[in-house]
């Protein structure tokens, strides 16, 4: 008897839940949006996130909260975003490169399937220059091979973007690469090359500008020039277009299963912000290389990056 009654209760309450008529869909967004930034407040991602938050707030008319969630090379914040409610009210930046190098180069499977993120827009590509110490006899990319000896690069660490770039350059041009690793960030690596700890390095304009007097820029790893240093040739111009894809794409994304209509709203707003002249000027001043691309283009860039990393895998296994 008790069982029957219990069954009835379950049935009725189930029916009630089902009968809960959905309210008419409110206009999206109608409450605060959170942007998760997977790095600290002062860095490049932090600045970009903060600016995007302020501009989105104006555009969408709802408060936008920027939340820094640093840790594990940007993977921690991504995990938090991945597990957030896919209601369009939590979005963020995802540092995909960190997942890729961790998985491909270090053999560490991520706890989330990062390919399931819904891409909103790729905003910028952090592109790097290849440079040497000014006193070095090397004057061009071709000289790197002609030197006939290993070239030592200063880098943050094994598997970092600049590490990948140096190795890809060595593999493509055919010269051996050595490293001095452990520099905390790219400005410190640039300082190390300027000091003479290592002969060569890679970094963006914002990382090298303070020690430019002591460095010689060899090439810009991109297919478009950096307006800050327009005299430096790109790898595409130098006949190495396969390398030009390298860099750090800064991508805004939403948790998997975020409804497409909401994604569209956010994507349109972000795109409009990026296209705005004031934003462009801000980006140029802050050293951001705007290169907006939708989901399809973004996944292509990520796949190309992954392919280059796959090619470098044997290098690590050798060690």
């Amino acid at each position: 008897m008790l069982l029957v009654r219990l069954f009835a209760v379950v049935l009725v309450s189930g029916a009630l839940v089902l009968a809960d008529v959905p309210e008419a869909p409110a206009a999206y967004p109608d409450k605060p949006i959170t942007i998760i930034v997977p790095f600290g407040a002062g860095g490049a991602y932090g600045r970009l996130g903060r600016k995007m938050g302020a501009d989105l707030e104006k555009k969408l008319g709802v408060p936008v909260v920027v939340k820094n969630n640093p840790g594990a090379g940007g993977r921690k914040g991504a995990v938090v975003l991945f597990k957030s409610k896919p209601d369009g009210y939590t979005i963020g930046f995802v540092h995909f490169i960190s997942f890729q190098s961790n998985e491909i180069l270090r053999g560490k499977k991520a706890s989330i399937d990062y390919n399931k993120f819904k891409i909103i827009l790729k905003l910028t590509d952090a592109k790097q220059f290849v440079y040497v110490n000014k006193k070095s006899p090397i004057k061009s990319l071709a000289d790197l091979k002609k030197a006939g000896r290993p070239i030592k690069f200063a880098t943050t660490g094994v598997g970092a973007v600049t590490w990948v770039e140096a190795n890809a350059l060595g593999a493509t041009l055919g010269f051996p690469v050595k490293f001095v690793t452990g520099y905390k960030n790219l400005p410190k690596a640039a300082l190390a090359v300027a000091r003479g700890d290592a002969e060569a390095g890679a970094g963006g304009y914002v990382h090298v500008r303070n020690v430019l007097d002591d460095l010689r820029m060899l090439a810009f790893i991109a297919d478009k020039k950096d307006p800050n240093l327009p005299d430096v040739p790109t790898t595409t111009e130098l006949g190495l277009p396969q390398l030009s894809v390298l860099g750090v794409p800064r991508i805004m994304a939403a948790p998997p299963r975020t409804p497409d209509d909401k994604l569209q709203v956010i994507r349109k707003a972000v795109q409009e912000i990026v296209d705005d002249a004031a934003f462009k000027e801000w980006a140029l001043k802050g050293g951001f290389f705007l290169n907006p691309e939708g989901p399809d283009g973004t996944w292509k860039v990520l796949q190309a990056n992954a392919k280059i990393m796959e090619g470098l895998k044997p290098l690590l296994q050798k060690k």
Binding site: R75, R106, G157, V158, G159, T181, G182
Partner: peptide, 18 residues
């Protein structure tokens, strides 16, 4: 995680210890 060598030391696959 030691970035110098790209290896994990005693992290026991815990995300907290990364």
């Amino acid at each position: 995680y030691t970035e110098m060598y790209g290896v994990y030391r005693y992290t026991m696959d815990s995300e907290y210890l990364w």
